[in-house]
Amino acid sequence: MSDIPGGPMASRPLHFIWLLDCSGSMGINGKITQLNYAIREAIPEMRKAADDNPGAELLVRAVTFSSGASWHLAAPTAIQDFTWEDVYAHSTTDLGAALRLTSEALKTPPMPGRALRPVLALVSDGLPTDDWRSGLRDIDATPWGKRAVRVAIGIGEDADREMLKEFLANPEQEPLRVKNPKQLVAAIRWASTVAVATASTPAVEGDKQLATPMDRTPTITAGASDDDVW
């Protein structure tokens, strides 16, 4: 663009962190495979959401939790360079460990002095097995963690709705509950794009667009789906 003066618009980093349940139950009926698929499906939409918000530089990371927690993707990765490596399921549901690990990343430093609200996107299918409340308090004790845009997806009937609700810390917001792979794809897509829009271009009515999101998923399409059961 050397024919017009001025470089790219100034932008702020938008840190997006997936918190993914990789406990043993996620291995049942191919849920973990569906999760890997759904995240890959969401990548083009996330790129589009980033392109639509030139004031935001979208950087993605992922934490997995099962027996303990670890960075699946530790380096904040520009969405244009982001590719998804499969996660695998085994063992317990140590959400607290994941929250503690994430809280370390939400301190300044390593967070920069200036940024947009980070996004924390939690996906889980069951009950945490460690002290997750303590981990959540660690998140809330960081300046970036307490301001984070949060989205939560509960997979199947066993997902701990109360825990997900507590994670969201917003009375107007409900966790997304998904019952089949198609809904999971829609929910991941929704979470990864609407949360980015909420963090990068705040609306005057606050985080309203995060409320009642399931209407936006393709559940009203007529006709039964043959992949309704895991």
């Binding site: 702020r12 300044t108 002095g113 200036r114 940024a115 947009l116 609200r117 300046p143 970036w144 301001r147 705040p202 609306a203 005057v204 606050g206 985080d207």
Partner: peptide, 9 residues
């Protein structure tokens, strides 16, 4: 704007 850490609502 540069004095703002978190550019939230």
């Amino acid at each position: 704007e540069l004095r703002i850490h978190c550019l939230d609502e």
